[in-house]
């Protein structure tokens, strides 16, 4: 039975690839890889806004302002942590 967390992280990676049109497959994204900034996945402010919308649409997670977004969206791990906290471990089936 896959660990629910790795299941969630895999979902998050698929969400990243689909919503941000990334030209790589989900498995290539490491759990702790930085998403923004130098040496990262190379995402920018438009990607951040899109992620905020996608997490709201798919998990009901509300990210109120850029400061919270910067902390929450650092990596797949930090997003998973926020979703865990939010109690939205189960994804909203599309």
């Amino acid at each position: 039975m896959s660990d629910p967390l790795t299941g969630l992280k895999a979902q998050i990676k698929r969400l990243l690839v689909e919503n941000l049109m990334l030209q790589l497959n989900a498995a290539e994204i490491a759990d702790d890889q930085p998403l923004f900034g130098p040496g990262s996945l190379g995402l920018d402010s438009v990607d951040a806004l899109q992620l905020v919308v996608a997490l709201d649409k798919n998990y009901g997670l509300k990210i109120p302002d850029p400061e919270v977004a910067r902390r929450t969206l650092q990596s797949v791990n930090t997003i998973a942590g926020a979703l865990e906290q939010h109690g939205a471990g189960r994804s909203v089936e599309p």
Binding site: L20, M21, V46, Q50, V53
Partner: peptide
Amino acid sequence: ATASPLVFP
């Protein structure tokens, strides 16, 4: 409120 910011530009 949930229209895609990535698509609009």
